[in-house]
C-alpha cells in the first residue's frame, strides 16, 4: 500500500448533539501533493486542530471524504479497519511541544516505532541516525531529551515523525516555542524532508515569521477552507 498525497472533499465534523452541537468543520476541501508543504492558518477556534485530528484518524469526521493517494480512508465512514496501524505507517506527527519520551535517549526516541514494530534494533537505530544527521542533531544522539535545547528537541521530534517514511506529516504549531531563527530552521527541514521523501506536509501555524515560507496556504474560517498562493520564500 503506497499512499500519496492528501485529498479532502467536503469534510465535516460536528461536536456534540442538539442545541449544544458545534460544527467545527462545515465542508473542508484540500489537496496536498507528495513533496509539498502547505500552511494551514486561521483564527482561534476555526477548526485547525479538529482538521488535524480527523486527518490523523484520532477522531471520526461526521461526513465527507478523505483519501490518501488513491486509497479511500473515509467516506461517510471509516474505510480502514486498523486506524492505529494507519497512524503508525502512514502519518508522522509533530506537535507544538516535542513530547519526547523522557526515559529514552535521543536515538531511541527516534527509533522507537520501528523497534516496537519488530524491526531489528540496529536497523532502526541506523535509520534514526541517518535522520538525526540530516537534521543536524546526530552529535546529541545519546543525550536525554531533557538535556536538549527546545530547537534540538523539536528536530528530534521531526526525526521521530519521519522515521517510518510516512507519506503524510501533520505538524501542529511546530515552531511556537522557538525563536525565529530556529523556527526557520524547522521549516527548512520540513521542506527538505518533504522533497527528499516525497512527503505531503501540513503545517498548522499562527506564526507570522513562517507564513511567507509556504507556496500554498489554506485559510480556515468558520469551518471552511479557502486556498491562497503563498510567497514560498525560504530564506537560506
Amino acid at each position: 500500500m503506497n499512499l500519496h498525497g492528501i485529498h479532502l472533499e467536503g469534510l465535516r465534523k460536528r461536536y456534540g448533539e442538539g442545541d449544544t452541537a458545534v460544527d467545527a468543520l462545515k465542508g473542508v476541501d484540500m489537496e496536498v501533493s507528495p513533496g509539498e508543504v502547505v500552511g494551514l492558518i486561521g483564527p482561534s477556534g476555526s477548526g485547525k486542530s479538529t482538521l488535524l485530528k480527523c486527518l490523523g484518524a484520532v477522531i471520526e469526521p461526521t461526513g465527507g471524504r478523505m483519501r490518501l493517494g488513491s486509497e479511500i480512508i473515509y467516506d461517510d465512514r471509516w474505510h480502514i479497519r486498523d486506524l492505529r496501524a494507519l497512524r503508525r505507517d502512514q502519518i508522522g506527527f509533530v506537535f507544538q511541544a516535542p513530547y519526547l519520551i523522557p526515559f529514552l535517549n535521543v536515538i531511541d526516541n527516534v527509533a522507537l516505532l520501528p523497534m516496537l514494530a519488530g524491526r531489528k534494533n540496529t536497523a532502526a537505530r541506523d535509520r534514526a541516525m541517518e535522520l538525526l544527521e540530516a537534521l543536524d542533531v546526530a552529535h546529541r544522539a545519546n543525550a536525554w531529551p531533557s538535556q536538549l535545547s527546545g530547537g534540538e528537541q523539536q528536530r528530534v521530534a521531526i526525526a521521530r515523525a519521519l522515521v517510518s517514511h510516512p507519506p503524510v506529516i501533520l505538524a501542529d504549531e511546530p515552531t511556537a516555542p522557538l525563536d525565529s531563527e530556529r523556527a526557520m530552521g524547522v521549516i527548512r527541514i520540513l521542506n527538505q524532508m518533504a522533497e527528499q521523501y516525497e512527503t505531503a506536509v501540513i503545517v498548522v501555524t499562527h506564526d507570522e515569521k513562517i507564513i511567507p515560507t509556504f507556496k500554498r496556504i489554506y485559510h480556515i474560517r468558520d469551518g471552511r477552507t479557502h486556498e491562497e498562493q503563498g510567497e514560498g520564500r525560504l530564506i537560506a
Partner: peptide, 16 residues
Amino acid sequence: IREIAVLKLIGTRNRT
C-alpha cells in the same frame, strides 16, 4: 500520561 497519549497517537499498540 502525556507520553502515553503520544505513544498511542503515533501508533503504539495498547498491548505494548
